[in-house]
Design a protein around this nucleic acid. Sequence first.
RNA 1: GCGGAUGUGGCGGAACUGGCAGACGCGCCGGACUUAGAAUCCGGUGUCCACGACGUGAAGGUUCAAAUCCUUUCAUCCGCACCA
Length: 802
Amino acid sequence: MSDYDFKKVEEKWQSIWANSNAFRAEDFSDKPKFYVLTEFFGPSGSGIHLGHVKAFTPTEVIARYKRLKGYNVLYPAGWDAFGLPTENYALKVKKDPQTVTSDNIQIFKNQLTKLGFSFDWSREVDTTSPEYYKWTQWIFLQLFKKGMAYKADGVVNFCPKCKTILSNEDSQGGICDRCKGGVVQAKRSVWYLRMKDYSEKMLAAIDEIDMKPNLKDSQRNWIGKSAGAEIFFDIEGTREQLKIFTTRPDTLYGVTYMAVAPEHDLIEKYAKKITNIKQLRAYKTAAVKKSAEARAANKEKTGVLIEGLRAINPANGASIPIFAADYVMTGYGTGAIMAVPAHDTRDYEFAKKFDLPIIQVISGGDISKEAYTGDGILVNSKLINGLTVDAAKQKITEFLVKKGQGEKKINYKMQDWPFNRQRYWGEPFPIILCDSCGFVALDENVLPLTLPALKDYSPDESGDGPLKKAKEWVEVKCPKCGKSARRETDTMPNWAGSSWYWLRFLDPHNAAQFASPEKLAYWGAADLYTGGTEHVTRHMLYASFWHNFLYDIKAVPHRLPFTRRMCNGLILDETGRKMGKSSGNAIDPITVLAQYGADAFRLHILFMGDYEQNTAWTLEGINGCTSFLKRVWGLKQLMRDDSTVSKAHERALHQMIKRAELGIISDEKDCEKREDFKFNTVIAGFMEFMNTVRKSNYITKEELRQYLIVMNPFIPHITSELYSQIFNKDILSERYPEYDESKLIETEIEIPVQLCGKLKGVIKIQPNEPQDAVEKKALQVLGGITPKKIIYIKDKIINIIG
RNA sequence: GCGGAUGUGGCGGAACUGGCAGACGCGCCGGACUUAGAAUCCGGUGUCCACGACGUGAAGGUUCAAAUCCUUUCAUCCGCACCA
C-alpha cells in the first residue's frame, strides 16, 4: 500500500477549488439558500491562532455538508481590521496601519486556504477599505439624520493607556477590552448613538433568535430592564424636585434619607445654599477619579451629607436628609435614589454606618440584623397598610401620579453607545462642525470620506483625535453656509464596521447601495451565526441595534440579522489556562498543519471535544486521526464489486449516515429536540463504519462511494482525491446520501435480563417479539424462579422481580 | 454577593433523555511481521479480596431500574458586579 502524501493531495485540491471558484454562492438560485456565518477575522500580525481553527472548522463542515445536501450555501469571510488591535500593533512595529492590515490579510488568507476552508472569496470584505466604510459612514448618516446620533458632554469610561473613551460594552468589569488596563470615568465630548431607544426591539430579537438560554439571559441582563416608578421629591425651600427611580415604590414610607451620585447636578445648582459645598466637591473629585475597578473593590459605603438641602416625602410630608454617595451611579436611573434601609441591603449598610433611622414597612425578616428584601404585607404605611407588595406598588403609584409627584417608569441598564474614539485607525465621521450651523452631515454623494494618511498617528492626551494633525483635511467649508468649518476629528469605534457586515456579504461589490434590495430579500437573515461568547454582550447587541434600525428605515427587509446563534468554547492550553499571545502559551496552528496536514488537523480538533465546551489543547490523539486517514486511503485495496450484499454492512452504513445527518446540523426548530454540533460523535461513527469494513475485509464500490461523500465535509482533500481516482468525478457535484430508516432495523436484538435490577444475562430476541416469548427466554436464563413481577420494556430490557 | 457551566477509566470523551455505564480515539500490556527500530496487523485493557462484588465529585431520596429525576453538599472554571 502506497503511503498517503497529504501535502501533495491537499495542495492539488486547494488549487483546483481556487481555480474553479468551487465555493461561490449564487445570487438567486432554485436551490434553497443557506447562509452560514462565523464572526469574521481581526487580522492580527501573528497569523491565525488555534481559536480560529476551533471556531471555523465546525461551520466549514456545515457549509460543505449543506452544499452536498443541495443548498445554495453562502459561507463568506472578511476582515474586521479597523480599531485598536491593528493600530497598536502598527505603532509597535512602526508601520502604517494600512500596510500592516494588508500584510496581515495576506497571511491570514494564505493560512486559511491551507486548512482547506471553503469560503467564497469572491465576497471578501475589508472594513478598512473605502468601498466598505463608505457604507459604514452612510449608516451613521442615517442614524444622524433620524436623530439617533447626537453629540453631548458626558461622563464616560476612559482608558488612560489607549487614550480614548470607551463604551460600557468595551469596558466590562472596569477593564479596557483592548489593553486589559483599568478604565476611569472622565467627562468628554461624546457622540452617542441612541441604543437605549432600541432596548425593547433588542429584547424582542433575543426572544426570537434561536440560542441557548444562558446567552439570552446574559443579553437580557445587559439590557437590564426593570419596571418601577419615578418619584419626584420636593426639596424644602425651593421649587426643585429631586427625581428618583425605584422598583419599590411600595416602600415609600420607609424612606429615611435620599442619596445622589457625587456628580449629580443638584449639588452645583444649589452650591450657594449648601454649607459644606467644598467637602462635596472634594468628594466628587475623589469619586470620579476612582476607577470602576477600585469602586467595585471598595465595598465600604462612603458618602457626605448635603447640608442645607432636605427633601420632603410626598407620602407623609416627612423631612429627610440628602446625601451624596458614590454607591449611586450617575449612569443609571436618574442618578438619585430614595433610600429604604429596612428593605435594601445597600441602604441598610449605609444607614448603619451613618446612624440613620431604619423604618420597617414590609412585615417579615428581622431588621435589627439585616435588611428584609422579601415579600410581605405593608405596615407603618398609612395609605397602603395591609396590602401585599404588588398591590401597594399599584396603589401608591396611582396616588403619586394623581398628585403629580410620580409616574410609572421602565428603566434599562444599557446606556446609549459612546461612539467616538480619539484614535486614528477608524472610520472618519462624515460630519462637519460649523460655528454657525452646528453639526452638519456630509452629502451622501461625497462618501466615502477617506481617512487621510498621517505620519504620526499616535494618540495623545489632548482629548482630540490624531486626525486634527491633518490640517488640510480638517479645514473645510461648511456645506450649508459656506463659512470656514472643520471636520470631526474623532473616528468610529472598532465595532462600527462589524455592526452590519453580514449584509455586505450579500452584495459586496455594489457601489450604489450597501446591498441591493433583491439580494437582501433573497438571502435574508443568516441561518446560522457562530462566534465567541465574549461577543454576546458586545458585538451581538450592536449588531442587533443597527440591524433593527436599518429595518425601521426600510433599508433591510427582515427584522432579525440571524435566526440562530451558537457560541464556540475556547481552546485552552494543556494546563487549562486561556491561550494568548500575552501569556506566551499560544500554539501556532501552522506547525500542526505542516506536520499532519489539513484533513488530520480538522478531524482532530473536531474529535477532541464538544463545540460549546472549552477544550484543553493537546496533540495526543492526533495519531488516531492520521491512522484513520491512512485506512481511508487504503480502502481502494478492500473494494469489491457491488454484487456483494450484506445486511450488516448496509445497516452500518445507514447508521453512520443517520448519525451524520442528525449530528452535524439539524433543521429541527425545537432546540430541545436537536442534537447537532456533535462533530466528535459523527466522527466516531465514521470510525465505527471503518471497523465494520475492516472486520469483514471488504467494502463494495457503492458503499465506498457513499462513505467518501459522507466524510467529505470533514476531510475534503483525501475524499476528493479518492473519489476522482475511483469514480473519475468531482465529489463536490454529488449529492449527500440519504439514510433509510428501514435499513436500520435489526433482525435480531440482544437485550439484558435483570433479576431485581441486577444484570444476569443477555438474550437474543426478534424485534416485536411477543412478550410471553421474551419472558420465557428470560426465565430460562435465570433458571427455576417464580417471578413476582415482570417488567418488560419492548426491545430494550427485561427485569424480573423474584 | 448574584448568575451560569462543568465534574464519568491512566487521558480526550460517549451513553438514543430513566433501561447492559465507559461508544470512538489516545495511552498502556501481550503477540505477529522485522537483524533491529519505525510503520502496520491481531488480541487485551473500569476497579477489587474476581463463577462474585463495587463503580459516573460526596451524602441522602424517588423508582422494578438513576450518570440522567429530587434534596443537601463539595470542588473547579467562567460571566456580572453597589442597576436602586
